[in-house]
Simulated assay, not measured.
Amino acid sequence: MRTVELAQGHLSDIFAFTVPLAFEKTFVSLVAHFTDNDTLGGTAPTVFIRAGLDDPTPVDEGPLSVDIHGSGGAPVARANLRRSTTDGDTFFVSITHTKSAGPWKLQIRNNESEPLRFNGFIANDEHATKRPWPEFSALGRLVFDANAVHSRQILVRNVGVSALSFKDKAGDRFGPAGSKIVISKVPDPIPSHHTGIIEMTSEPLAEVATRQTSTFDHLFTIDDALQLDRRVTYLVDPPLLPRTRCRENDGCREYVRNFDLFPPDFTPDFSCVTCGHFPEDHGLPPAPPFDPFPPFPP
């Protein structure tokens, strides 16, 4: 898949593509995105196709095919561009190769008055160009509070051609084995141009002594043979243990049972902000290591 954003009248970069000798056709699907959950249905783009050293040939929307000439000036292919009958912002280009030629190149011009984002799929099998394609919003950093159940959401866009369906289901773990985050809601199939919400719920995470961020990945399973572009990367900040503080009158002579919470960068380690001692100096357990997703017990 290729993605390009084009203002009115602007041309994309030139994309090269190959045509294996055994194939007589090349198929291109173009999806023009205006805004989320909306279609424009405006003017079709122009696709410029070039074979060898000849000038690029413009291919506009219409029922007729145009000749694509090779380096010697003779026709080597015919191409046409048609609009989808079910989606006014999706366009299909069909190229029928009549002679061996190349190299092949393609360029897109936005003819609409609005800026559009084009996603393109190209293959020698027409079905392979009509696939879904998920685009996840950045999940970013998940900051957890102590002893609390948290809910988070991921916005997912379908920037492909066909409907996007998830095989993940509510109750599945989100992240690595032992994760305390579970998927609580998966959207219904998402049509092209549309968005959906994936919801997650987290059990309380173990508190840690100092701010420690870990990076995790989750691979969603979608209803598509290639299973491409389905990874979500996120950061986890577990809750902080309260920082110890000596009693004002007793100081270090007593075990500390009072706790105050200070900003994570107040001190570089888990220590008493009054005397600077570590927890074990006050008769408390040492600071636990950070492992927000401990392995399951045997």
Rank of each mutant, 00 (worst) to 15 (best):
T3V: 11
V4I: 15
G9C: 05
G9E: 09
H10F: 09
H10I: 05
I14F: 02
V19N: 00
F23M: 15
F27W: 02
V28S: 07
L30N: 02
F34A: 08
F34Q: 11
L40D: 13
G41N: 04
T43R: 12
P45S: 15
V47D: 04
F48V: 05
G52W: 01
P56V: 13
P58M: 14
V59E: 01
V59L: 06
E61Y: 03
P63G: 05
P63M: 08
P75F: 06
V76H: 00
R83W: 02
S84L: 05
S84Y: 03
T85S: 01
T85G: 00
T86K: 14
D89R: 04
D89Y: 02
V93S: 12
V93Y: 04
S94M: 09
I95V: 11
T96R: 00
T98S: 13
G102L: 10
P103V: 15
K105C: 06
L106T: 13
L106K: 12
I108H: 00
E112M: 05
S113H: 12
R117W: 07
G120Y: 14
E126G: 07
H127F: 11
A128E: 10
K130T: 14
W133A: 13
P134G: 01
P134E: 02
P134Q: 07
E135G: 15
F136V: 03
L139I: 05
F144I: 08
A146D: 09
V149W: 10
Q153G: 10
L155N: 14
N158D: 04
N158T: 01
V159K: 08
G160C: 10
G160E: 11
V161E: 13
L164D: 05
S165Y: 07
K169N: 11
G171M: 09
R173G: 13
P176I: 12
K180T: 09
I181L: 01
V182T: 14
I183H: 03
I183Q: 01
S184L: 08
D188Q: 11
D188Y: 05
D188R: 13
S192L: 02
H193P: 02
G196W: 01
S202K: 06
E203G: 11
P204L: 05
L205P: 02
L205V: 13
A206P: 03
V208R: 03
A209I: 07
T210A: 08
R211P: 04
R211D: 08
S214L: 12
F216N: 04
L219N: 10
I222Y: 09
Q227R: 07
R230N: 11
R230A: 08
V232T: 00
Y234A: 00
V236E: 08
D237C: 02
D237N: 00
L240Q: 00
E248V: 05
G251N: 00
C252N: 09
E254F: 06
Y255R: 07
Y255K: 14
V256W: 02
N258R: 14
N258V: 12
F259I: 06
D260Y: 14
P264D: 12
P264R: 03
F266S: 10
F266T: 05
T267V: 13
S271G: 10
T274R: 06
C275K: 03
C275E: 04
F278N: 11
F278E: 06
P279G: 00
P279R: 14
E280V: 06
E280S: 08
E280G: 06
H282R: 11
L284P: 01
P286M: 06
P295Q: 06
P295L: 10
P295V: 05
F296D: 15
P298K: 15
